[in-house]
């Protein structure tokens, strides 16, 4: 055994480094938020929400991009979330430990961490190429595919938290599993499923890479789902790399909007979860 002095020094050094590492992590979160607030707030005005994205070198807003992002996110979630909830229900209530369920769980986990740019290429191949042009529908499809694994995962986890006793009680009353699921399990897991939905929206609304080659971008107000549609992430990408100060300012404002939305959704999701399970660490 080493001398106790050396051991104590090693201990203090290691623990100090650990606190230092935490400080570094928190510093970067702070630095990013600070930059966003500083640069983003400068461009916050009513104009941002009432005007279209401008041509280079003139002032404007982000109205069409905000609308496009909201529209594609809503469409993506409207398609992806119900599918995800159903699949999660299968894994929690019917799949059990079967090999099929294990395989689906594994594949879902892989899709959850798969690079989103791959999903963009996939949707390009199966939607954009056959249609012959970029469109809001393709963008929404890409977002739906990204939303599915998130909802599958959270739904299964949340349904598993419903006490077995409640399911047994329902079965004892003569209910078939589908009745039990719809009338007992879903209501009991309501806030958990809502959390999954919020996390899916948070995940989807910042996605940029898959929109680059699906929805592309548009400088104009467009409600046509069959045409390219403006959206915040791609506008941030394009405007930030441009040499025009007006565009760069819009990029910062858009970045602040997106980040605040996503952080608010994530925090709200956490609050919902902790209300659901007061004793559990979230």
């Amino acid at each position: 055994m080493k001398r106790s002095g050396t051991r104590k020094i090693a201990n203090v050094v290691a623990l100090t480094l650990s606190v230092g590492a935490t400080a570094v992590g928190l510093f970067f979160l702070g630095a990013i938020l600070w930059t966003l607030l500083k640069n983003g707030l400068a461009g916050m005005s009513l104009q941002l929400f009432t005007q279209m994205t401008p041509p280079p070198g003139s002032a404007g807003g982000l109205l069409n991009a905000i609308f496009g992002s909201a529209a594609m996110t809503i469409m993506g979630i409207a398609v992806g979330a119900p599918l995800g909830v159903l699949a999660g229900t299968y894994l929690a209530e019917y799949g059990g430990n079967s090999r099929l369920a294990a395989l689906i769980r594994f594949v879902n986990d892989v899709l959850l961490s798969a690079p989103s740019i791959i999903i963009g290429l996939f949707v390009y191949q199966i939607v954009v190429v056959p249609m012959g042009h970029f469109s809001a529908i393709a963008g929404a499809a890409a977002l739906a595919i990204i939303a599915i694994p998130v909802t599958v995962r959270t739904t299964e986890d949340m349904l598993r938290l419903v006490p077995q006793g409640m399911k047994d009680a329902s079965t004892a009353l003569g209910a078939y599993p589908w009745r039990t699921t719809l009338s007992v399990i879903y209501p009991a897991a309501r806030s958990g499923i809502l959390t999954g939905l919020l996390l899916a929206i948070a995940r989807v609304s910042g996605e940029t890479a898959p929109l680059l080659f699906t929805a592309l971008n548009s400088q104009f107000w467009s409600k046509d789902l069959n045409a390219p549609m403006a959206n915040l992430p791609v506008d941030i990408y394009l405007f930030a790399q441009s040499p025009y100060p007006e565009w760069q300012q819009l990029a910062w404002s858009g970045a602040l909007l997106i980040t605040l939305t996503i952080l608010a959704l994530s925090i709200f999701a956490r609050i919902v979860v902790s209300a659901l399970q007061p004793t559990r660490r979230t």
Partner: peptide, 19 residues
């Protein structure tokens, strides 16, 4: 806070990294 850092979209890291 650590989990929020994970929630920040990658485009934000990009624009912050560049500027």
């Amino acid at each position: 806070a650590v989990e929020l850092l994970a929630a920040v979209p990658s485009i934000i890291f990009g624009i912050w990294g560049l500027f």
